[in-house]
Simulated assay, not measured.
Amino acid sequence: MGRIILGTGSSLPSKVVTNEDLEKIVDTTDEWIRTRTGIQQRHISTTGEYTHVLAARAAANALEMAGVAAEEISLIIVGTISSHMLMPSCACFVQKEIGAQNAFAFDLNAACSGFLYALDLADKYIHSDKEKKILVIGAETLSGRLNWEDRNTCILFGDGAGAAVVGHSDSDRGFVGVNHFSDGNLWNLLYMHTAESTNPDIKVKDWPGAHIFMEGREVFKHAVKAMDDAVRGLMQKTGIGLESVKLVIPHQANIRILNNLVERLELPAEKVFINAQKYGNTSAASIPIALDEANRDGRIEENDLILFCSFGGGFTWGASLLKW
């Protein structure tokens, strides 16, 4: 162990879009959305609130909590699928925004699992060099990657960012274990194209646009089983029972997925942190936003075992266990 989270932070756009607001632009109702997803509202970016801007704000909040200066950061990893540019990376823009002049920076694309994958990578970097302090960020502006005429997807997603500062500790606190997976064979159940190719030889036939496509029912079935299996596998690998876990922070996909996961794992409701009703699905940002909220609300104490699990496009999924 010995690689711990020193501080957390999050940032959300100021604009809130309610289900009633969506009723005015797409064929849906508040009741329909609540019944199927549990989501009541989501935050949507406005002028200038690019992914890296939200990420930098979250990073600044995490640095402040950790008592770490931006110049002390060695590496910035941003989990995102919605940076406003493909190049430079969102992480490079964050580096510029916060003045982390001594860091190198890159993005990680694992959809909704991006933050957990990035946390695992940070843990291994610090294992090889305990002097490193690393910013791990999940940030998305999926509002710019949605078909706002598709009621099956546009109701689900929101914008936001969450961050954690990871560093070395001489204690026995830290990362206990991970159990991560992917399956590219199922890519066509949840995907998003980039801009259309300008090379005619490699153009995607019948290119449908650069926004999210999802087979909701199939994703639901795979997501619940995959996270259930990942959590059980992790508990078996670590030899720790679920009853020892203080708090479970899952990816905030939607309430139906979360309720089914809780039921399968036989978890008491008070052990599971859920905020999807307020923010919707913020993809890679969902777990770090929830983590920061739980942390600042006093739901986490030193030496608590915290369990994370996620599922996203790719497919990517997994679980992580942390001794706080």
Score class of each variant (00 low, 15 high):
162 G>L: 05
269 A>T: 13
100 A>D: 01
218 E>M: 15
229 D>T: 15
307 L>I: 02
163 A>C: 13
75 L>M: 10
288 P>L: 07
86 L>N: 09
175 F>R: 01
147 N>V: 12
50 Y>K: 14
70 A>H: 00
168 H>G: 03
41 Q>E: 14
77 I>H: 01
222 H>G: 10
59 A>M: 04
94 V>A: 03
138 G>F: 04
287 I>F: 07
148 W>T: 07
258 L>E: 02
158 G>M: 06
46 T>Y: 02
84 H>L: 13
181 F>V: 13
302 E>F: 02
171 S>W: 05
322 L>T: 08
151 R>E: 13
228 D>W: 05
20 E>G: 03
165 V>D: 01
282 T>Q: 11
228 D>K: 13
9 G>F: 10
162 G>H: 10
253 A>P: 08
73 I>N: 02
63 L>N: 10
308 F>E: 00
263 E>V: 11
117 Y>K: 03
122 A>K: 01
108 L>M: 10
260 N>L: 07
90 C>V: 03
314 G>K: 02
293 E>Q: 01
303 N>Q: 12
7 G>N: 05
58 A>L: 10
80 T>V: 07
30 D>A: 15
30 D>L: 15
299 R>V: 00
155 I>M: 09
147 N>G: 11
53 V>K: 13
237 K>I: 05
95 Q>I: 08
169 S>E: 06
162 G>W: 04
63 L>D: 03
119 L>A: 04
110 A>Y: 08
42 R>F: 02
294 A>W: 02
295 N>R: 01
319 A>H: 01
134 I>F: 13
50 Y>P: 10
204 V>R: 00
246 K>Q: 00
149 E>S: 14
